[in-house]
Amino acid sequence: MPGLAIDARALTKSFGERPAVEGLTFQVQEGEVFGLLGPNGAGKTTTVRMLTGLLRPTSGEATVLGLDVRTGAEQLRRAVGLLTEQPGLYDRLTAEENLRFFIKLNELDEPAAWARAVRYLERFGLGGREKEPAGSYSKGMRQKLAIVRAIVHEPKVIFLDEPTSGLDPEAARTVRDAVAELASEGRTIILCSHNLPEVERLCARVGVVKGKLLAVSTVRALRRQGASVAVRVDGEAARFADVVKALPFGPGALADGEVLTVTMEKDQDVPEVIAALVKAGARVHSALPAERPLEEVYLDLVKGGEA
């Protein structure tokens, strides 16, 4: 049974008087791919920096692989891998020199670590290019090289901060494939992003952050957040949209052909919706739980967080 890779409790960071993140409490299991979603400036990077020992929390506690982020920062940095938002490569150095530098900094057995790095370079399509200066690489290649640098010391937990930000669709896809490969190896991955399809594809669970943690859940449960039901009726469903909207608990209704998607706060209100439709003359064929697009759920949460 997998243990906890990350355990954050009431984690808070302020810069002077300005709070960046407040009271974050969440856990990530070993081997899980966890997404940290949030708009720019929401505190995702600050959270990652606290969990990688780069910033000291103002209050609260967190352990990563059992290491306290306050007292075990040096050990922690040895145990985790971090892909920063900018690849941060030394442009004049070759890819090999960039990697060898970090192999040396991590005090690894150099021949073994380099052999491993070569395998990763080949897997990520960079094989045979290691003697070229990093500055001559394309954006996607740079990002993949930065990923190899982040994992060359075989960390059990990998933090990826906006790994596809600023990449063209093709480069973004190759980076996503690389991340999926890492996930398939059973590593714990924390993926910070505001790219929702990417998070949906790669992550089992997500946390939505905007200064505070607005939600932590599986993607599926998030999409089902609030009750949502797809009601199939005879004829144009649009005829019954106003009937539903007029109900006292204020559900939303969106018609598409014969299907009326009704959203409401509680599952318990579904029978009332069906009853109202039948009373209005609708012939109901089916009523099935509907999932909302993650984008919609995310925007609702973030908007709610502003209030």
Binding site: T52, G53, L54, E74, Q75, R77, R78, L82, T84, Q86, G88, L89, Y90, D91, F102, L105, N106, E107, A146, R149, A150
Partner: peptide, 14 residues
Amino acid sequence: ERRTIEPLLASPIT
């Protein structure tokens, strides 16, 4: 300036 400092500081170096 070249944004290489964060990966460097994320390494175990003191």
